[in-house]
Nucleic acid binder design. Structure first.
Lengths: 258, 258
DNA sequence: TCTTATCTCCTTACGCCGTACGGAGTTCGT
DNA sequence: ACGAACTCCGTACGGCGTAAGGAGATAAGA
């Protein structure tokens, strides 16, 4: 699968679209929709059938217009994906709550952030496939960055360290969500359950696989498979990784606050 | 960008392809290439121009055959990507070295693993776009799993914990590499340097962005931007995250070995 | 040696995709 | 009343993965 990219065109136009200035009175017929309606339709399609099923023609069909009409709302598909991206980020809980800690300590807050993001990826798996070089600087992207940073504000970290911690959590969550979503979707995408897959692949693999060539993989793979009742247990992997990660941050904060 | 998916077809056939049984004498003309040649050509294209530029027609052209001829080597594009995936994993250093630690402690070893993987993603950025639900169980995928596990073997962790640690490192590295690769490619992909981009987007953003609405993002973003001389510093983010992560693992091992 | 099954490789074609181009009809400022 | 600016659409181009089927080569079995 090739990933879809964001933001190819004119940056100024992209920013204006993202922040959605209300259209002044202009010549020509009134537009049938708002730009947000187009983004909403696109999100629905991507949620339901994946980014691979998202096409301009399909979005247009859902809105009841022709494909080319979309180009009066959006310069192209890349910008549409920018809008989708910013749009779904609006779903995140957005406590503008006190700067000094609201509930529990930083650890609870950072953990909550990680869980929110993990859940977001599960609601919109296509987010994982969007390559956000130069993430679309829409209102919700900024708001979410602010929201995430709040978790580690005022706990003794410098501004740059705060940014790095949030990035680290984001990177890990992205990776863990990727595994989790893959595990969820694999059966429906391939039309084969894990069991059916092994039924077919197993005998062939038995012929070529030498357990003694990679003894540790053999041992650990077997132990993990038995424990998970599957090749992976994504939610356990997420919980485990998150706990380690927070321990690492704790060590940093202890060192910083002396 | 839509991601390309691996492994849609018959599992048995996939396994056989991956492990490459030598072809016995059969009726019909001798094949012009080996399956590995096809995979090699595909990897070259993806390395050079990205996964988006990888098409069956293009691979065929590079090999000097027609597009449809490829289908005598490979059932489809998904399986070809499986082969590419397994192929590039062969590049990883593969010390079958002693099970008891070779160089330094587990921390040095695990750090080395992370760096190797980070570098691998940089050599083959398209790996980041391959959605590996049910990773292709080729010889090199297995060997790499074994290799990674060696870093944390015999340090007091249980088998399942070893698997989880390796998964966690993999998830984080994937995420960090994604950011790093995006930052590297963004200029050439969009045709705009960061500076040019800000020149165009900046004025528009200034009109809509309210610094006081998201004060922490404003403050931290400014501090980070000044420190990095850019929006992100991917290699610093990698180093920082990795250090925290290893601290977290250290805490786990201390607890385990009491 | 001849037949036949099976292989490689090819041409053609189908239904998708993003979107360039240009035309028709509508609505505003003047 | 005019003309500019707009929305919407039909058509078309060059790409994609790959289904279908044909031509020629090569092996095993008779």
């Amino acid at each position: 699968m090739t990933t879809d990219f964001t933001g190819g065109g004119d940056p100024r136009r992209s920013i204006e679209l993202l922040w959605g200035l209300p259209p002044g009175p202009r010549p020509g017929p009134k537009p049938r929709f708002a730009v947000a309606d187009v983004a909403a339709a696109a999100v629905e399609i991507a949620d339901a059938d994946g980014l691979g099923a998202l096409s301009m023609r399909r979005v247009a069909e859902r809105l009841g217009v022709s494909a080319m009409s979309l180009y009066t709302y959006v310069p192209g598909k890349a910008e549409l994906i920018d809008l989708m991206f910013d749009r779904v980020l609006a779903e995140a809980p957005r406590d503008t709550v006190p700067l000094d800690e609201a509930s529990g300590g930083w650890r609870d807050r950072l953990e909550a952030i990680a869980r929110q993001n993990f859940a977001l990826y599960q609601r919109h798996p296509w987010l994982l496939q969007v390559a956000t070089s130069r993430p679309p600087l829409g209102p919700n992207v900024v708001a979410k960055y602010d929201h995430d940073l709040r978790a580690v504000d005022g706990v003794g970290l410098g501004d740059v360290e705060m940014d790095l911690v949030v990035q680290m959590v984001g990177d890990f969550v992205h990776g863990a969500a990727r595994t989790a979503v893959a595990a969820t979707q694999v059966a429906q995408r391939t039309g084969l359950t894990d069991e059916e897959w092994w039924e077919r692949a197993g005998p062939a693999l038995a012929k070529v696989y030498d357990p003694d060539a990679t003894p540790i993989a053999t041992r650990v793979g077997a132990a993990a498979g038995a424990e998970y009742n599957a090749a992976v247990d994504p939610s356990r992997a997420f919980e485990f990784g998150l706990a380690r990660l927070l321990d690492g941050v704790a060590a940093l904060i202890e060192r910083a606050t002396g």
